[in-house]
């Protein structure tokens, strides 16, 4: 099965094609350009380099959130459009789960995406000795303070990954044993998203284009009230 996955959910835009556990190709950009201008030409170029026609793709994957409001809509629209036009199945995975796929050796992982105003989107995963990824907590938005409380309670060293890594690492490094992946694995990559999607597809979690929806996350209550309080 050939699977094309794209990710535009945060700072980076990327696309990748995987087939039966092998990465065939990946394009990635971390520049301040509108994802909507970048992603489809990127897909077109990648397929051309791989000498693949879009008709040869069996399944379309995308990160469905949490993440940037505009970014999620761009990624989902692109994948829904491709899958709908070609009558192929799609599969969506959590942005945070896709980030956890940047690692892959036995460890604890806390993916962190900057949700602004001292908040992060986060979850907790464990890569097991047998090579499987186990989810330990659901995707949620936490204040940095609550993230610290959570990570402290683990009493174990933990890998941070995602565009909120620097923010969290600087805040936590003296109090919690945080580890960082290699710089090449710090941000979300479509290759990781593609492998997460491939696994989900093999578990039968594919849907038709119309059923794919973004997973926006509610932000902490206190923060929402704080904004409103300033209204004159």
């Amino acid at each position: 099965m050939k699977l094309l996955a794209i990710d535009t959910s945060s700072r980076t835009a990327s696309c990748a094609v995987v087939e039966n556990g092998i990465l065939l190709g990946e394009f990635y950009a971390n520049i301040k350009l509108t994802h909507s201008c970048v992603i489809l030409p990127m897909v077109q170029d990648l397929l051309a380099r791989l000498k693949l026609s879009v008709n040869e793709i069996d399944c379309f994957g995308v990160t469905t959130g949490p993440g940037s409001f505009t970014g999620l809509r761009i990624g989902l629209s692109a994948i829904k459009g491709l899958a709908h036009a070609l009558g192929k199945p799609c599969v969506g995975v959590s942005t945070l789960e896709a980030l956890a796929w940047n690692l892959g050796f036995p460890c604890l992982v806390a993916p962190v995406l900057d949700a602004r105003c001292s908040q992060v989107y986060t979850a907790l995963f464990s890569w097991e000795q047998d090579g499987t990824l186990k989810r330990l907590s659901p995707d949620e938005a936490l204040s940095l303070t609550d993230l610290e409380i959570r990570l402290k309670s683990l009493k174990s060293s933990i890998y941070l990954v995602g565009d909120g890594t620097e923010l969290c690492y600087n805040m936590l490094q003296n109090r919690i044993p945080c580890l960082l992946p290699s710089p090449a694995q710090q941000f979300l990559r479509a290759a990781s998203a593609a492998f997460a999607c491939e696994q989900a597809a093999l578990q039968g979690k594919t849907v038709d284009a119309g059923s794919l929806v973004p997973a926006y996350l509610r932000l902490p209550q206190a923060e929402r009230e704080l904004l409103a309080k300033n209204k004159h």
């Binding site: 409001f69 509610r218 932000l219 929402r224 704080l226 904004l227 409103a228």
Partner: peptide
């Protein structure tokens, strides 16, 4: 009126 609304702009 709040963070959610701001996010969705």
């Amino acid at each position: 009126d709040g963070f959610e609304e701001l996010y969705s702009t």
